[in-house]
Design a protein around this nucleic acid. Structure first.
Length: 276
DNA sequence: AATGCTTTATACT
DNA sequence: AGTATAAAGCATT
């Protein structure tokens, strides 16, 4: 049983909890709703995130999220000060990042060859696209593959697209490994967007920050709303961890590929870092 | 001019 | 307590 086939069940459990959190559903009720016995429910979580259902539920509460927010209050600053990841130093982390030049930006990737493929992941099927210079796209396609592809074509209207799952597979396998080696990223965005995305990379796995903190980190404390839209236009899901930004109130907030998926990612990472 | 992965304040249920 | 509504604020289309 693969992680990706577990995901749809995980997501439906999250959905159920979202909708019924007011009446405090029991483990049995949640299990029943996903068509599983409590026993299999237990196995499912162990397999997918390595935690018990009970821990899983705890990670999903607003209280827990608030605690995390508190913890990482000045996390962006400290990471920055430690010299771990200033603008030129991101390479020490788990990705390298390269932005398109202004001229390239205008040409929308003209002359560029992009290879793409669909792969399974712990968060459902995803569309991965790469150039010689790095990964330029990662998105999830819960419904139509077509939509994900149209979006890719849209963002790189000048580039040639080649379906080549063989080429993208090796990347796809690396991406969701806990202690993965670094992968190259190739990003296209406005100055503001690139700045915001770089700031996202400073949030460690298992931690979160709010939009306001992020705004402060890019030097525009009152631009939390604009930061939100920039975060939302992140082209490389998961690797650029836009899912680690939540509302100040502890509410997880919106996500391009569904709030349930965002929560799933946060729980998954929380479980990972709690292991140690 | 309108929109959005926000935030804060204010008013209701 | 939780939930609507309004307004402020700012990059992007």
């Amino acid at each position: 049983m693969s992680l990706s086939s577990d995901y749809s069940r995980i997501e439906s459990a999250i959905r159920y909890i979202e909708q019924n959190f007011q009446q405090q559903p029991s483990l049995g009720e949640i299990a029943g709703n996903s068509g599983l016995s409590p026993f299999h429910f237990q196995r499912l979580f162990k397999r997918w995130a390595g935690i018990s259902p009970k821990r899983f539920l705890q990670f999903l509460t607003v209280e827990y999220a608030k605690g995390l927010l508190q913890e990482s209050r000045d996390l962006l600053d400290t990471a920055y000060q430690a010299g771990l990841s200033g603008p030129g130093r991101l390479h020490d982390l788990f990705v390298t990042i390269e932005a398109v030049t202004p001229a390239e930006f205008k040409r929308n990737g003209a002359g560029l060859r992009i290879r793409y493929g669909f792969h399974d992941s712990p968060f459902g099927e995803c569309l991965l696209s790469v150039t010689e210079r790095g990964i330029c796209g990662l998105s999830f396609c819960p419904g139509e593959r077509k939509e994900a592809l149209a979006d890719l074509r849209d963002r790189w209207s000048g580039a040639g697209l080649i379906e080549d799952a063989m080429a993208t597979r090796s990347f796809a396998q690396k991406i969701f490994e806990p202690g993965r080696q670094k992968v190259p990223l190739f990003l296209k965005g406005t100055n503001f967007q690139i700045k915001v995305w770089e700031a996202l990379l400073r949030i460690p796995s298992g931690q979160v920050c709010c939009y306001e903190d992020l705004a402060q980190a890019v030097g525009q404390a009152s631009a939390s709303r604009a930061v939100g839209t920039a975060v939302g236009s992140n082209p490389v899901a998961f690797l650029v961890p836009c899912h680690r930004v939540i509302r100040k109130s502890g509410i997880v907030g919106n996500y391009r590929w569904g709030a349930a998926r965002k929560k799933a990612m946060l729980v998954w990472e929380a479980a990972l870092s709690a292991e140690k």
